[in-house]
Amino acid sequence: MRRFLPSLSALHAFDASVRHLSFTKAAEDMGVTQSGISRQIKNLEDFLGLTLFERAGPKLVLTAEGARYYEEISRLLDKLEDVSIDAVRGRTAQSMLKIGFPPTLMRRWGAAMLTAFASAHPQTWFEVYPCRHDLDFATSELDLAFVRGTGNWSGARSQLLFQEELVVVGAPELLPPEGLSSDEALLDYPLIQNSSRPSLWLHWLRGAGVHYKSRIYGPRLPNFDMILECAVNGMGLAVVPELHVRDELASGTLRLAFDRLQTSGEGFYLCFPQVRMSSTNVRIFRDWFATEFGRRRQFLPPACAAGQR
Rank of each mutant, 00 (worst) to 15 (best):
R260S: 13
P122W: 03
D183P: 12
A156W: 01
A145P: 04
N223P: 11
Q40Y: 02
L221T: 05
K213R: 14
R19S: 11
P176S: 09
T33P: 06
T291K: 11
L261M: 12
D183M: 06
W125C: 13
I284D: 15
E65Q: 07
A231M: 05
L8T: 12
P301I: 11
L160G: 09
P198Q: 01
N194V: 10
S22T: 07
S35L: 07
G294V: 02
L48Y: 05
F14I: 03
R91A: 13
M106N: 11
T253Y: 04
H20N: 13
E141K: 01
F272S: 03
L249W: 03
S278T: 11
S264W: 00
T150Y: 03
L175T: 02
F137Y: 04
H203A: 14
R260P: 11
G265C: 03
S17G: 07
D188A: 09
P176R: 04
L76V: 11
E28D: 14
L228D: 06
E72Q: 10
F126V: 06
A10I: 01
R68C: 14
T33L: 08
Y70R: 02
E229H: 09
H12W: 07
M106T: 04
I192P: 05
G110C: 04
P103C: 07
S154K: 02
I85G: 10
F289L: 10
R148L: 13
A231L: 04
G110T: 08
R309N: 14
I284C: 14
A27T: 06
R220V: 12
F289D: 06
A116H: 01
N223R: 11
A16H: 02
W125D: 15
